[in-house]
Simulated scan of single mutants.
Amino acid sequence: MTEGVLIDPATSPPPGGPAASRPVPRRGRVLRRLLRQPVPTGALAFLTLVVLLAVLAPWLAPFDPDRQDLLGRLQGPSAQHWLGQDDFGRDELSRLMFGARVSLLASLQAVAIGVLVGVTGGLLAGYVGGRVDSLLGRLVDMLMAVPGLLFAITVVTVLGPGLTNAMLAVGLLLTPPLFRVARATTRSVREETYIEASRALGFPTRRTVLHHVLPNMIAPVLVQITILLGLAITIEASLSFLGLGVQPPTATWGSMLSEANSYMAQAPHLIYVPGAMIALTVLSFSLLGDGLARALGTSRFAVAEKA
Rank of each mutant, 00 (worst) to 15 (best):
T2E: 14
I7R: 15
D8I: 14
T11W: 08
T11I: 12
S12K: 10
S12W: 09
P13E: 10
G17F: 03
R26P: 04
V30A: 11
L31Y: 07
R33T: 09
P40N: 05
A45S: 09
L47S: 03
L47V: 02
T48F: 08
V51S: 11
A54D: 06
W59F: 14
A61Y: 06
P62E: 02
R67H: 13
D69A: 13
L70E: 01
G72L: 07
R73H: 03
L74I: 02
G84T: 08
D86M: 05
R90E: 07
R95K: 10
L96V: 12
F98R: 04
G99T: 01
V102A: 11
S103H: 01
S107V: 04
A110P: 01
I113G: 00
L116R: 02
G122H: 04
L123Y: 06
L123R: 00
A125R: 06
Y127W: 14
S134V: 14
R138T: 09
M144Q: 15
P147W: 10
L149M: 14
A152Q: 10
T154H: 09
V156I: 05
V156W: 02
T157N: 12
T157G: 13
L163Y: 03
M167Q: 15
A169S: 10
L173H: 07
L174S: 11
L178H: 04
L178N: 06
F179L: 07
R183V: 07
A184D: 07
Y194G: 09
N216I: 07
P220M: 11
P220E: 10
L222A: 15
V223N: 07
Q224N: 12
I225P: 08
T226G: 01
L231H: 10
L239T: 04
S240C: 09
L244P: 06
V246Y: 02
T250C: 00
T250D: 08
G254I: 05
Q266D: 12
I271Y: 07
I271W: 12
G275F: 01
A276P: 07
M277Y: 10
M277V: 15
T281H: 05
L283R: 11
S284W: 06
F285P: 00
L288C: 09
L288E: 03
R294K: 13
A295G: 13
L296F: 04
S299C: 05
